[in-house]
Design a protein around this nucleic acid. Structure first.
Lengths: 331, 331
DNA sequence: CTGAAAGCGCTTACAG
DNA sequence: CTGAAAGCGCTTACAG
């Protein structure tokens, strides 16, 4: 038979659909007899409630939208994996939106997710100025990204990370430190920390930014140009993939690492740790970032449903999670 | 005002809800006047149809479930990114199921996806013998994985890839080739090709399998043991991350690459190409794999909806997509 | 403790 | 060319 519905279960058990629904949702008073009969009917028929119909009523879909630049990037892949798993533990599903570094698509996705009645959104893209987050009337949590005054941000301690990396580079004997980052704007705490620490030693902070949207081949070309041009003997890359590009350049051009040039990355995704454990890097607590974002968004969803007092009006001030220096042989 | 509904638009435009629905779906005859008034009302109210309600009627949710071991792995991350993007182009959303290499969770997900009325499923995990795929009554497509007689498989040419890799290793002067793979079962075409090519040269094929479920630290330990024990001077790893672990071991133990040991990987994900372009590897057409899987599953979904003749009963025999040798300095 | 009825926001025959 | 009504598969007041 086709997929059984509530009606079929009710007929099979000899009760009303109301009663079946109550057993399913465990609400109201039920005699043990009825409960048993209904449960038997459910398993005999292999009944599974229709999530769509349920969503239409309660205004809960139990789906959270997850917006990222791209899961092809190991950092975001690991973050999404952590998010999805924590969501599953809390009974939610993840609708994945992979923006491919494209701001226009992000705005579309925001619309799409709301049309599909997701209960909340976790967003972690690099795009600034995406319209729509302000207007959205559902719980939103940002991961390492500032998108609006009232949107809580989950992040790790970028300033401490930037400081750790830079101090380590200098401690290893770097005289001409270079920072390579994606975008060098005011909110870039890793860059800010780099500048502070370097300047405090009386050295000159040199910073180069490749831009998120730059395709990989050009990005590599840019980076190699900067390395040659600056003659840096220590490089802090604010993501591991860039650090590995620097390492590759050193290999190609016959520089000894760390003797001629010291290299430190940022992120510490499992993939990089596995494939290139020798890379010194600042380890972000990726799983914790994901889990914390889920807690915040789900707590808000459920608080709204319960009509409770607004959950933590000050969650926007989440304390940053700790980072850790992971030593390899590249420094 | 709260989210506007069809009723509100109808009132605003002075027509019936039926008419608004027809404008929305562009079906039946409509006078231009009515069409214009409705469209105006829609934009004035900022109306967006409710996807949930729509799904409940047409039995289409426009959601496809995507089941993978984990997007934290760069290969699967890139695959999912490609899948999600092609799905978006065809008007579908992706519900992500990240199994964390856990067969039990995969079975749960299969259930969950059906309860949420996804229109189809793309699956690409390593688990064998997951119950439920046989019983599922919706379009399913597997990526590089055999799960049932009638489930089409999208894959690249593993046999050719295995041959390319092995021949290349031998051409570079390897005398004692070692294959490191996840599981050494009959369906592993890369391993089969390795054995064939090595045996044809009168050498002895040595094969070691670490098992998907093995946690990373143990995996590394295993691999290092094998490398020491076999004294191999050429290693073919059937995934790039493992190849990078071999490279790291060579570095740690002072082996020169490729002089003392040649190393070739498999997959060629963008992340690895970017971070470690020097790795010789067999490049899979990851984006094409994802796109092709989407075409197959969406074609089937839409054929069912149109009640057309069964789409390609023989799609299970999809020809494999071509792979390519990518040369680096590790061989 | 249990059921009949209304309704979630749409679409779709069926009339007109 | 347009509308009134039934229905998608559930849940939830409201009665009893």
């Amino acid at each position: 038979m086709a997929r059984p519905k509530l009606h079929d279960v009710a007929a099979h058990a000899g009760v009303s659909v109301t009663t079946v629904s109550r057993v399913l949702n465990n609400r109201g008073y039920l005699s043990d007899d009825v409960r048993t009969r209904v449960n038997t009917a459910i398993s005999e028929l292999g009944y599974r409630p229709d999530g769509i119909a349920r969503s239409l009523i309660g205004r809960k879909s139990a789906i959270v939208g997850v917006i990222v630049p791209t899961v092809a990037d190991p950092f975001f892949g690991e973050l999404v994996s952590a998010i999805e798993n924590r969501l599953a533990e809390r009974g939610y599903k993840a609708m994945l939106c992979d923006c491919q570094e494209n701001a226009a698509r992000e705005a579309d996705y925001l619309d799409l997710l709301q049309a599909n009645r997701v209960d909340g959104i976790i967003t972690s893209t690099h795009n600034r100025d995406v319209e729509g987050y302000g207007k959205a009337e559902l719980p939103i949590v940002a991961v390492d990204r500032r998108i609006g005054a009232h949107i809580p941000i989950v992040r790790s301690d970028n300033r401490a990370g930037g400081r750790l990396a830079t101090e380590h580079l200098l401690a290893r004997g770097t005289r001409t430190p270079l920072l390579i980052t994606a975008t060098d704007h005011a909110g870039n705490d890793r860059a800010a920390a780099f500048r502070e620490v370097v300047a405090a030693r009386g050295l000159e902070p040199v910073v180069r930014a490749y831009g998120y949207a730059t395709p990989f081949p050009q990005r590599r070309a840019l980076i190699e140009t900067w390395l040659a041009e600056t003659g840096a003997d220590g490089v802090f890359a604010t993501d591991d993939l860039t650090a590995l590009m620097v390492l590759e350049w050193a290999h190609k051009t016959g520089r000894a690492v760390p003797h001629d040039v010291r290299i430190i990355g940022y992120d510490g995704s499992a993939a990089v740790r596995l494939g290139m454990p020798g890379l010194t890097t600042v380890q972000q607590p990726i799983a914790q970032l994901g889990a914390r974002a889920v807690e915040l968004v789900v707590d808000r969803i459920e608080a709204e449903a319960d009509d409770e007092a607004e959950v933590g009006a000050d969650t926007a001030a989440e304390p940053p999670l700790p980072v850790e220096l992971r030593l390899g042989w590249t420094t």
